[in-house]
Design a protein around this nucleic acid. Structure first.
Lengths: 335, 335
DNA sequence: GGAAAAATCTTTTGCGCAAAGGTTTTTTTC
DNA sequence: GAAAAAAACCTTTGCGCAAAAGATTTTTCC
């Protein structure tokens, strides 16, 4: 590969020292206007771009934030990434993305890569498989600011930004109850994820507040489209099928809708459904899906702003904040 | 922030020179086994991670590829990103993402950032606004390998990976004709994009081959969901509404479906639709959308493999390749 | 025992840049 | 016109690492 132009090249061509060129480019008052202009002109002519790598090394600052997500193509995550890149761009930071594919081992290796790359801060939504968090502790030990989003972990020295899962679930289930549902199933996320616990809690509390006893037979562990189709098919065939469904995310809600359609179950008449996400698909399907908006773009922005605040405050000695994004029930056709 | 552990720290603690530590860590035969082990042990204990920034500078190689896309949250692009990250991960490269938001100015600035960051190669799908390509020429002038994907540009010294848009369109329109359509509308991408031209060409040729005259009144410029709803509403109200629609992407197809449903037009009886993408939503809607699979994941992988090949071959003196991803018609309910 | 050979470690350099701290040249001032 | 002050430029250093080249110690072998 071709060598990029350096200040040394400019210095040699002009007969100045590198230091003069360096200062000229930054309008240092020590350098005469004439020299400054000559330097800048040649720099432009040669297409000089400051080598950020050299600066990174010198200042031990990379203006890069590391982003670790399960998978980029999930609508929710890709929306978050959009928000992250947005704020990063505004603040002249770069974003390095890593996927865990929900694999613990890959997550650990990715964290090593982030450390080697000396990113200034890290944004993480961890893998479903992850039970051990010592790789994240490593980041913290190096005093690199860390912000968890969506899938959060509260007992580490790290800020978190999450959806108000409890409130969202409570809202959704209350809404179903208000629409007359008395037998509401929940498709639930894994219970080792905080969001899984919180949504289930919201579900329970909403039932309780309305005098409906909690029935653990109506709790199904299910968080993908395919699973939802399979599980729904078996549930909807039963005599005592539910009259309402609160789904952990839009995809499972849509899976349930697909199964219901196949079985001739009419929505919302026989079954009312509320999803969680407000994905694109939720407004495309028919009937349109009532869902809880998670504001992924906002979450990405908030998480990044918080991270940049941590990066730019000089001390690592702070008390982690735990932000929550308010959800919003989007009333549409499935209720 | 805390200083990361360096070989110097290890050297001082152990009373060796930095060079000995450096060699010990790489099992250089000059260093005694005893020393090697002592060094490695302390390195592990202190959590030493080689500083990639220093290596980047020394070797003028960053093991980072720059990725520039219009927007991360488009399903197609997020799928591509998945493929890119996959291959990058396998080859120990990192991915830096930038969004143009389809803005030319932002694209130019992002390219400057990529240059400053001395990425080893660049993957680009350029902005809709982009007419001038000199910022990409700058990358090429620096002899940094460049691969365009999806939205490609052929007359630069850059490889390209694209969907076989012509064939996909031809296939889709032929299929509509085979199903009995005689008046097929097309929702077309901007004509300055090669993919827009190619798909329109495929549409025309398919008509021609089947003896249907091309009618420019059936060509609509439309490539978003909202536009599709608006345009469809007006088209479908006409007496001479089309009996078939070939849409530039799934979102516009879905927009048309939504409009049709509102107007009581039955699909596929009164109107048959083929999309382009095979997005998630396309199999969620009802009826399920017949569409052309673009294999985004494959595209991301192929583009990255090609880029890595260019990076790792020592010479910049190569003839650009132009790969095409074969499309596949997915027959579903809208035809 | 002593020179050659082998083993083991160290010093130095450069990657590109910026900043601290020099040096030289020019201008000012009495 | 000479000292002081200001302007304009230069040399050096360090960021962390690896590799070239050099230095020291230990071993080998007749």
């Amino acid at each position: 590969m071709k060598k990029q132009v350096t200040i040394k090249d400019i210095a040699e061509k002009l007969g100045f020292s590198v230091s003069t060129v360096s200062r000229a480019l930054k309008d240092h008052p020590d350098i005469s206007i004439k020299t400054r202009e000559a330097v800048k002109e040649l720099a432009k002519l040669l297409g000089y771009k400051p080598n950020r790598i050299a600066l990174n090394l010198k200042n031990s600052k990379t203006y890069t934030i590391g982003l670790l997500v399960p998978e980029t193509q999930h609508y929710f995550f890709s929306t978050i990434i959009n928000g992250i890149e947005e704020v990063a761009y505004e603040n002249n930071y770069n974003v390095m993305v890593f996927q865990s594919n929900d694999k613990y081992m890959r997550e650990v290796l990715n964290i090593q890569a982030l450390l080697s790359n000396r990113v200034d801060g890290v944004l993480v939504s961890y893998a479903k498989e992850t039970r051990d968090f010592s790789h994240f502790q490593q980041i913290i030990d190096n005093e690199i600011p860390l912000v968890f989003f969506d899938r959060i972990k509260k007992d580490l020295h790290a800020d978190t930004v999450s959806v108000d899962d409890y409130h969202g679930a409570f809202q959704a289930v209350s809404y179903l109850l208000g629409k007359g549902c008395r037998r509401i199933a929940i498709y639930s996320a894994p219970q080792h994820l905080l969001l899984g616990q919180n949504r289930l809690r919201g579900y329970k509390d909403a039932l309780e507040k309305n005098g409906i006893p909690f029935n653990k037979d109506l709790v199904y562990s299910c968080d993908t489209y395919q699973d939802a189709i399979k599980i729904s098919r078996s549930i909807f065939k039963k005599k005592d099928m539910p009259d309402g469904l609160f789904a952990v995310n839009d995809m499972t809600a849509l899976g349930a809708m697909k199964a219901a359609r196949k079985l001739g179950i009419s929505i919302p008449e026989e079954l009312k459904i509320v999803g969680f996400e407000n994905s694109l698909s939720s407004s495309i399907c028919d009937p349109e899906l009532t869902t809880v908006d998670q504001f992924g773009f906002e979450m990405g922005k908030k998480a990044t702003k918080l991270l940049l605040k941590r990066i730019e405050q000089n001390s690592f000695d702070y008390t982690p904040e735990h932000l929550q994004i308010k959800t919003q029930l989007i009333e549409r056709g499935t209720c």
